[in-house]
Amino acid sequence: MSIHTKKVMKNAWRITKHRDLTCLRIRVPGGHLPVKFLPLVQEIAERYGNGTVHLTTRQGFEVPGISFAKMAEINHLLAPLLQELEINRGVSIDDPTKGYPAAGTRNVSACIGNRVCPNAVFDTTTLAWDVEKIIYPNDPHVKVAITGCPNDCIKAHMQDIGIIGQVEPLYESSRCIGCQACVKNCHKVSTGALTFENHRVKRDPKRCIGCGECVLKCPTAAWTRGDQYFRVIIMGRTGKKNPRIARSFLEWADRATVLKVCSNLYTYIDKYIDRSLPKEHVGYIVDRTGFSIFKEEVLRDVTLLPKTRVAHFIDFGGYMYDRNIHLE
């Protein structure tokens, strides 16, 4: 049997521990799927695979136990899914009957967002689709996840780029009855950005992370929702060298900034990636170039809002496995 493994993997098929069998990876951008595609997943698993499907941590499907010989046939079956989930949302794929054109840039995952969740400050699914449009198809190994509030249920802190919704709370003091539900709650579940002075609530804008808890708790709508913004956190990762959670890069950024940063990231990667390696995760590129080069590249041609805050230094921290060799 002759298999071009690199082409197979780029086509979103896996090389598995079983010599003759592959595994199909299906992207579900934003993790939100029209259920009419479930029968297709079932059909592939039952007709070609071993009758099971794995729900991935990135909100895609992996359909295992498929013979390599069936890849072209199954790629054909996937065309309507690619058409609706990718092409119809603006992703450029030349021929949807040939399967996925790239697999390095992973599925953009998202929490359920404000379609359901009361905490979410925006529609995460729609932003996931917009990000997908910008970063896919692409070969570099990049993980992006989007979450509706700082609870970060999607674990944006474990991604190369994590996007967290922010809302600017607006305070109408004449509607405030001084119950302090917002103040107490902000201290209890968020950052303690609110204080009660002279019978009125004061908000420390540098401490506020835009979670919207004050709005949720206010019984008189003295707190309401202003504009939506985003916090962009970067270079969280797992892996065998230096696991670490992402750190804040931008705060109170608008949607245009977030999308431009995502697209600039690929220019940066292309410029600095170590091509002697089979692949290099973006986080390790940033380790080599340093944060300041990364920042310069991803903010190129970006017009930041006056209120957007940018990190001028990031101590990524985490721990190094090879520094733990003294553990017994």
Binding site: P118, A221, R225
Partner: peptide
């Protein structure tokens, strides 16, 4: 518009 408790919701007041 947009004055509801949850994001992207309105309030009748």
């Amino acid at each position: 518009p947009g004055q509801g408790r949850f994001s992207n919701t309105d309030l009748i007041g």
